[in-house]
Amino acid sequence: MRYRAMVKEAYLGLKAKDADRVKVHLRRLLLGMKMTDGLVFKVFIYTLLVSLAYVYLFPMLFMISNSLMTFNDIISANVRWIPSSLHWDNYRLVWEQINFPRALRDGLILAGLPALAATFSSGLIGYGFARYNFPLKKLFFVLMLMTFIVPPQITMLPTFRMYARFNLLGSIRAFIFPAILGQGFNGAIFILIFYSFFKMIPKSLDESAQLDGASPLKIFTRIALPLAVPAIIIVFLFSFVWYYNETNLTGLFLRGSEMSTLPLRIEQFFNEFTSIFPEGSPGREMMQSARLAGNLLAILPLLVLYFFTQRHFVESIDKTGITGE
């Protein structure tokens, strides 16, 4: 009898200990050692990411599926997402009509060169603003912000007239010259991005380099620039995308020239398309799908570019030996 009770006691004790252990394990699994490595947190993160990604991917999927549909599929109630057959004609039509390879080449040049120029100049300017004190700095800073805040719609007309007087219209010069002088599309925001990045670098780094005899230019190229790689990448990417996508100003500045960006060409093509096939005429039904196909073709190069550059968003490279800060 006593023996039995002892076994029971021991068994219960063991069970309690086990339960405790399981509890601890479970807790560690769910919540992790710190808050951010537990299962609960992971599930939470992935749910959020996936649901937000859905919001962004939804229009893309819509475009992809609808651009592969025939007109019958689009109006059919049975077909919602998956086309009854893959219908590549929309792409073929747009590809041939806008002369895609040529348009792509033009678009890459028209976006790439000004974007490079803008990245270069805004890096220099942002560094100047972030690292040096000089008279009238605040005034310049405010004026720079002003160039960004003033609605472009209102300065468009004087700008156009001015460019005409400088004989910049109709060529890529209309984009490169302002960009290299820090006045490209959204130039101020690039300067601001560089400004805040250079502000984040500790000043003692510069000072020690200066004590070692480095010239200001050397400090800039050897210390500041390598630490601002993420800034360089995002500025280049944004500026590339904005130059590539801008249709209003580009259309205005390039009127009557051979060069033209991809989105612009697609827009032109569809304007012609609507004039050839007015509302209700046969052939018109291709329009909607073809438009989506065209837009997908237009943003495809950007996606490819981004996918290959984003890996250079390097992880923290700031592991410099500064102590006592």
Partner: peptide, 24 residues
């Protein structure tokens, strides 16, 4: 310091005078 700072910002000042001042 001021002169080096101005050298860095110089391109912006030139650009502002040429391209931004007039339209705004």
């Amino acid at each position: 310091e001021a002169s080096v700072g101005y050298l860095f910002v110089l391109i912006w000042i030139i650009g502002y005078l040429i391209f931004a001042l007039y339209p705004i």
